[in-house]
Design a protein around this nucleic acid. Structure first.
Length: 481
RNA sequence: GGUCCCUUCGUCUAGUGGUUAGGACAUCAGGUUCUCAUCCUGAAGAUCGCGGGUUCGAAUCCCGCAGGGAUCACCA
């Protein structure tokens, strides 16, 4: 049995979004599972569409997700080079052989002529087949001439590891361009040569290639190549419509999720479980569980819509599984923290205390600033927090002031440990005769100027004695004004 | 239009002849001495696209239809 070799073969035309990476995820999982090899190959045969820098972005994306490749442009193996533009002599060699053996012919028709033929067929409501227009006396193929495959129409039935049994009649088999007039091969030709030369055992890609399968199969047969295992994955659809997810409709690049503070583990989990499950009710899969349990035959055959809510939920559950020190390390970037943190609070031990409090309400790291500003600086008094509070608005400023003074008097004696604070807050409920909903809300607003915060005792402990008491004083002053 | 594929709660899905059609996200309600969140409990939510068959019995098998998608390049 041959060792498993899979590949991800993107063309460098832009960043990778959620829809694209699945074409890399599945073959990567298959290779990992089998202890095989995952190859990264760059398909840059269309010079016109190439976007500079795209290759680096793709590499960065795969690396962030932990989908390391074993062979690729920067990881020489026995089957290089791994960039198609550097393999041109190879394609030309095969092309020459096919021309010599009569398996392909020079097609010197201009694009305009071809277009006219297509339109003519269309007006007659017939399918256009290039093989119906083969030249009677083809010229000898020479550099600069397009080379077209001479197909052998027949019915094909094959098995797709994801889609199951597929078949198509001879009308799906046609002549197609192998070598373009710029002497570059087409995808249709190059990928088959490469997969063969690189001993690829599993070709896993998006379902847009299914329609071309009969043509490819015909070429494999003409060349005498064995068929690899094929697996065509359905597209991920846009959240609203039924269209395939695309950049045009605002699909974000995977790297953008990284920059917003999503975890690779969550992204991997989300990507895999969109359209795949192991048959149990498990939803959360670690990377190693995915590798162990993934199988192509359990991939859904219909397209799944991209649901960002689910990603958010998953990321939250992965964040909650982190230890506080892991969480600190992962969030240790300026973009994830409020601007201009005073130096006395800009240290790992203080920030870790803050993180411990907000960990369970975090969905992604970029929302840390909005959740934590009051831990780092005093915010201006917002009188609407009290005036719109459904419990507090019923009290007069004097009554509120009295409660705050009682709070001050008690807390000034505290060592501000969370445990001590909790005890004193409970005592204050007795002293003031108020419900938690009233007293705690008041103290929270006074000390954070925020509508929501983590548990009061823990929050006060982190804010500290000096600032807490000061902020309560400031609130009392504002109430008097 | 030709060819090929798909169709179970709003969304992602389990399900392969007999189930009260199960779970998850989202939503709503209650609970966890306060808010937000977490967690727990519960509710609502699917005439299994439609119409015919086969069968004692069909989401599951067969046929037809409809809707959706992919593809018909010297793009990948």
């Amino acid at each position: 049995m041959k060792s498993v070799r899979t590949r991800f073969a993107p063309s460098p035309t832009g960043y990778l979004h959620v829809g694209n990476v699945r074409a890399a995820l599945f073959p990567w999982l298959i290779a990992q599972q089998a202890g095989g090899t995952f190859v990264l190959r760059i398909e840059d045969t269309d010079q016109a569409r190439e976007v500079s820098g795209a290759i680096d972005v793709m590499r960065e994306t795969l690396q962030w997700l932990g989908m390391e490749w074993d062979e690729g442009p920067d990881k020489p193996g026995d089957f290089g080079p791994y960039v198609q533009s550097e393999r041109r002599t190879l394609y030309l060699k095969w092309a020459q052989r096919m021309a010599d053996e009569g398996l392909a012919y020079a097609d010197i028709r201009t694009p305009d002529e071809l277009k006219a033929l297509r339109e003519d067929a269309k007006s007659k409501k017939q399918a256009f087949l290039a093989r119906n227009y083969r030249p009677d006396q083809p010229q000898t193929w020479q550099p600069g001439m397009p080379l077209r495959f001479k197909s052998t129409p027949q019915t094909y039935a094959w098995n797709d590891a994801i889609m199951g049994e597929l078949s198509a009649g001879p009308e799906a088999v046609d002549d197609f361009i192998l070598i373009k007039s710029d002497q570059f091969p087409t995808y249709n030709f190059a990928h088959i040569i490469d997969d063969h030369e690189m001993n690829i055992t599993h070709v896993i890609r998006g379902l847009e290639y299914i329609a071309s399968m009969p043509k490819y199969l015909n070429l494999y047969d003409a060349l005498g190549f064995d068929w690899p295992v094929f697996g065509h994955a359905p597209h991920i659809m846009a959240p609203d419509g039924k269209k395939k997810l695309s950049k045009r409709d605002g699909a974000k690049g995977i790297l953008q999720y990284r920059d917003d503070g999503f975890l690779p583990a969550a992204m991997l989990n989300f990507l895999a479980s969109l359209g795949w499950n192991d048959g149990t009710e498990q939803e959360i899969f670690s990377r190693s569980e995915l590798i162990e349990k993934f199988s192509l035959d359990r991939v859904q055959r219909s397209g799944a819509r991209f649901d960002e809510q689910r990603l958010l939920w998953m990321n939250g559950t992965w964040i909650r599984r982190l230890s506080t020190s892991e969480l600190y390390d992962l969030t240790d970037k300026p973009a994830f923290w409020p601007q201009g943190i005073p130096s006395e609070y800009d240290n790992s031990s203080y920030k870790t205390e803050v993180l411990a409090l907000i960990q369970e309400r975090l969905k992604f790291f970029a929302e840390i600033p909005s959740l934590t500003t009051y831990f780092f600086r005093d915010l201006p008094i917002d009188s609407t927090l009290i005036s719109t509070h459904k419990q507090l608005k019923k009290f007069t400023p004097e009554e509120l002031t009295t409660m705050l003074r009682q709070t001050q008097a008690n807390l000034v004696k505290s060592d501000f440990s969370a445990v001590d604070l909790q005890g004193r807050l409970n005592d204050l409920l007795q002293e003031t005769g108020q419900k938690p909903a009233v007293l705690f809300s008041l103290i929270r607003i006074a000390t954070t100027q925020a509508a929501a915060s983590p548990g009061l005792a823990g929050t006060l402990a982190v804010i500290g004695k000096e600032r807490s008491l000061q902020r309560i004083s400031a609130q009392i002053d504002a109430l008097a004004a």
